[in-house]
């Protein structure tokens, strides 16, 4: 049976402001634990709903992002509990620990995103095309391989080489080096 709660317009506006600011950070954080985009979409959707449901418990003097990541964490764990037979991941106990630790990345999300964006600018056209196809158009490695007339493994390897290089670049930028 659907429940029709009374919405406090002020509360809703406050939620909307905070959520709008941080939603992409939350989404990126979720996808780091749920690599596949459709699964990450589902978890993000559930997280968004849960954030609204739980918003009355949010203390106005607290930081919204760490609180939201805590909510997202539960949805990530729930996702993996449900999908455990579908795909392989860490043990539940370890995933618990890892996601707790990942909430500690809240302060790093913005500088890391900014650094990553700068690093992506240094990529070749081919690599940016790869990002667009894989992350934006959700093309599978097989489809990209077909378009590029390369092997599927070549596509996976290109992703791997690119992500490793980007990690090095982001780390260098954040540590003050110029990659």
């Amino acid at each position: 049976m659907n429940k029709t709660p009374i919405v406090d317009p002020e509360l809703y506006e406050q939620f909307l402001r905070l959520f709008s600011r941080d939603q992409l950070r939350i989404a990126g954080w979720i996808r780091s634990f749920v690599p596949e985009h459709a699964g990450a979409d589902d978890v993000f959707q559930e997280t968004s709903l849960e954030l609204w449901r739980s918003f009355p418990t949010f203390r106005p003097d607290a930081d919204f992002l760490p609180w939201a990541l805590g909510v997202a964490r539960h949805q990530v764990l729930k996702h993996w509990r449900t999908a455990k037979r579908d795909r392989l991941t860490f043990s539940e106990e370890f995933l618990h620990e890892l996601t707790v630790e990942a909430i500690g990345l809240a302060d790093e999300l913005v500088p890391r995103q900014t650094a990553l964006d700068e690093c992506v600018k240094q990529l070749s056209d081919r690599q940016r095309d790869l990002i667009h196809r894989f992350y934006s158009d959700h093309q599978t490695a097989a489809v990209i391989a077909s378009a590029w007339e390369r092997s599927v493994h070549a596509v996976y390897k290109s992703l791997k080489v690119m992500r490793r290089a980007l990690l090095e670049c982001v780390e260098a930028k954040l540590s003050g080096q110029t990659p």
Binding site: A27, G28, W29, I30, R31, S32, F33, P35, H37, L98, E101, A102, L105, L109, R112, Q113, L116, V120, I131, Y135, S136, R163, R164, L166, L167, V170, E171
Partner: peptide, 11 residues
């Protein structure tokens, strides 16, 4: 975690 975050934030 930082490596996985590169994947998460690339999109």
């Amino acid at each position: 975690l930082r490596y996985a975050l590169v994947h998460g934030q690339l999109a």
